[in-house]
């Protein structure tokens, strides 16, 4: 059974259909990359999975449980699914450490003292040990994005969603963030990424899906999808993206 299973997911904003019947399975421990032009529906799909956007039709299953039932309390689901955004979205009025401890304290009801060792361990693991007491505006983009990842991991999620998390970074900072993803993959985290980093997707993904106009046009292992794409749209996109 897939960890995350999307069946015919449809999302509309008014007359604009952003996700048009998406079927997608993410197996436990896999890294799945969504690629495609801006506006293809990648980000919206991730927001739907985290229940930040209600879906019009279809269903989303997490461990076989339908989490897209209308009226379901989204909090419990969101606590199990971590999400990292393109623009970091750290809370600017809190230190990095407080950013990471807020949700476990409020949602899981754990105390600061109880949390501190494990959260500090996360910071240390991702090379941020000396940055815990800094406020977001004192950190570089790469550091902020890594703090955002730590903040999501502090909830011990079962699945992580990454929404173009390197797109706002200076080119020389992209590597340090992608390294974090590789570490998570090595630990067996289940991950779904929307990304423009074709090289990374090719190297690290277990499965790559090409989206266009809200549909998955083609999917497969990276060697196949990048090496011998079958659909003309995929070929056209990759020809431009890899130029």
């Amino acid at each position: 059974m897939a960890k995350l299973d999307l069946r015919g997911v449809v999302k509309r904003f008014g007359d604009n259909t952003v996700c048009d019947g998406i079927d997608l399975q993410v197996d436990t421990g896999d890294m799945v990359c969504l690629i495609g032009a801006s506006g293809a529906g990648k980000s919206t799909l991730l927001r739907c999975i985290n229940l930040l956007e209600p879906i019009e039709d279809g269903a989303i299953y997490l461990d076989g449980e339908d989490i897209s039932v209308p009226g379901l309390d989204p909090q419990g689901v969101r606590a199990r699914i971590g999400m990292v955004f393109q623009s970091y979205n750290l809370f600017p009025h809190m230190t990095a450490l407080e950013n990471a401890m807020l949700a476990p304290r409020r949602v899981l009801g754990r105390s600061r003292d109880d949390l501190r060792p494990e959260v500090e361990a996360l910071f240390t693991r991702f090379g941020l040990a000396d940055r815990m007491q800094n406020y977001p505006d004192q950190l570089s983009g790469g550091q902020q994005q890594r703090v955002a990842i730590v903040r999501a991991l502090a909830m011990r999620p079962e699945v992580m969603l990454f929404d173009e998390i390197t797109s706002a970074l200076d080119p020389q900072l992209v590597g340090e963030v992608l390294d974090v993803l590789l570490m998570l993959k090595a630990e067996g985290m289940t991950m779904l990424l929307a990304t423009h980093e074709m090289g990374f997707a090719r190297q690290a993904a277990d499965k790559v899906c090409f989206l266009k106009d809200g549909k998955i046009v083609e999917e497969g292992p990276p060697e196949t999808l990048f090496g011998s794409p079958k659909h003309p749209d995929t070929q056209a996109f990759l020809a431009r993206a890899l130029k």
Binding site: G76, G82, A103, R106
Partner: peptide, 16 residues
């Protein structure tokens, strides 16, 4: 509003 999204995605309630 992205601050709200980030906080909600962590599982916080509207009130929190």
């Amino acid at each position: 509003h992205s601050q709200r999204s980030a906080a909600l995605s962590l599982g916080l309630s509207e009130r929190q």
